[in-house]
């Protein structure tokens, strides 16, 4: 498998807090589903935010798609790695579902017809076509998560980080999410699923990374 994200000696401490991520070394590859698990407060979300560049590590290096993370701006990282927040509300901006996918593409200069075609395809894939005129904030949690994923995939990232994607989903929706993750992995997109739902991770991840008090205690690679 092709290595896409490489973390070497990453450490991070929150100001005025005893919690810290300590000496994180790992390689995340395209085409694999990695489950990042651990107790509440073990550092899973912090690790995801460091990979995305939302938080800057105190020490260590991150290489993304062969480029040193220090040389990548937030928007450049966003084009390489898609990130779905724990709370989907934070990633919804537009007045309707279709526009949620189209507007970043248009702002970045994509032709309107092409952007619309892309949005239609993604809405179809995520079973959101019938909701295309609805206000994103008024959707159910599961629908919001699917919309966030669709909008993220519209950027064509090489890797996806999903923070607690199964939260609030019923059994059928979890199954659908798993199938989607498998499909994406087959297409060559890497996935890191941050979750404390060990059962979900154990059933669906190719590799499990377990964090405890900010340290990797198990990397099943």
């Amino acid at each position: 498998m092709e290595s896409y994200i490489k973390l070497t000696g990453i450490s991070y401490g929150y100001p005025r807090s005893r919690f810290a991520l300590r000496d994180i070394n790992m390689s995340l590859n395209r085409g694999e589903i990695v489950g990042i698990t651990g107790e509440n407060g073990s550092g899973k979300t912090t690790l995801g935010k460091i990979i995305m560049g939302i938080l800057m590590p105190d020490s260590g290096n991150i290489v993304i798609d062969g480029v040193d993370g220090k040389n990548l701006k937030l928007c450049e990282r966003g084009s390489k790695i898609g990130y779905a927040f724990q709370n989907p509300d934070r990633q919804l901006f537009a007045a309707n579902v279709r526009d949620e996918i189209i507007f970043p593409l248009e702002i970045k200069g994509m032709n309107k017809t092409l952007a619309q075609e892309k949005a239609a395809a993604l809405l179809g894939r995520f079973e959101l076509s019938h909701l295309k005129e609805r206000v994103p904030m008024r959707l159910s949690r599961g629908e919001k998560q699917r919309l966030v994923l669709a909008a993220t995939l519209a950027q064509e990232p090489g890797f996806l980080i999903l923070d607690e994607p199964a939260t609030g989903l019923d059994r059928d929706r979890k199954k659908a999410l798993y199938q989607l993750m498998e499909e994406l992995a087959r297409e060559g997109i890497g996935l890191a699923v941050i979750s404390h739902d060990l059962q979900f991770i154990e059933h669906h991840a190719n590799r499990i990374i377990r964090l405890e008090n900010g340290k990797v205690v198990d990397d099943g690679c």
Binding site: M52, G78, Y83, I107
Partner: peptide, 8 residues
Amino acid sequence: ALQLKGID
């Protein structure tokens, strides 16, 4: 979140 959508 907007920047993570690749918007500079």
